[in-house]
Amino acid sequence: MNSPLQANVLFQLGPVPITEAVITTWAIMVILILGSFLLARHLDTLPGKRQAILELIVATLDIQIRETSGAAPAPYRGFIGTLFLFILIANWSSLIPGITPPTAQLETDAALAILVFLSIIWFGISKGGVRGYFKSFAAPNLIMIPLNILESVTRIFSMFVRLFGNVMSGVFVIGIVASLAGLLVPIPLMALDLLTGLVQAYIFAVLAMVFITATVEESQPTVKDSPPASPPLEERES
């Protein structure tokens, strides 16, 4: 049986080995970009069926982001929404025969988690300034600095191991059952896999949002030293 930790190299492009997961990832990216471009081309103030469905998706994303973070969803909508849709489509791509979802490879999940890590830094610095971002490591007090630095790495690690473990174990179990019991037996397991894929995509997006919100809130100036309608941090301190 193939090891789930090994990537299946299809061909070499110069010095770069191209694996199956890379091709599936690029196919999903093309589908997402082309689909959103074609679907959002003719937007109208009086929405038709297509636009109503699109608006439903965006509004649901907005509600979830607002309820998780308690902030306006506009700055986060693009990143969190794309994360959710990409992971969802990647998880469900196992429905097409012969395709293993790219999220069942450790590398794809690691790349997504590193994106989340970088976006935490980005949103932390852009909302609270560089000083505010570094101050967020000293919350609630100075003793917590090593633990906070450790946590910022381990939570990213646990994030991608979680996604990898869930998706890969689904694919693995279906493979074992199909090889033991025959063609139609793993269908209920595949239905369960659809639910797992949806829940994991949701959890990945929500956790990314929770981590970003935590950093942004801790990097804001505390209530007692900021005026009620506070101007941005850089202007106030210069």
Partner: peptide
Amino acid sequence: RTLFVGLAMIET
């Protein structure tokens, strides 16, 4: 929603 996030943490 909180339950889902918590379950994900436990499941890790």
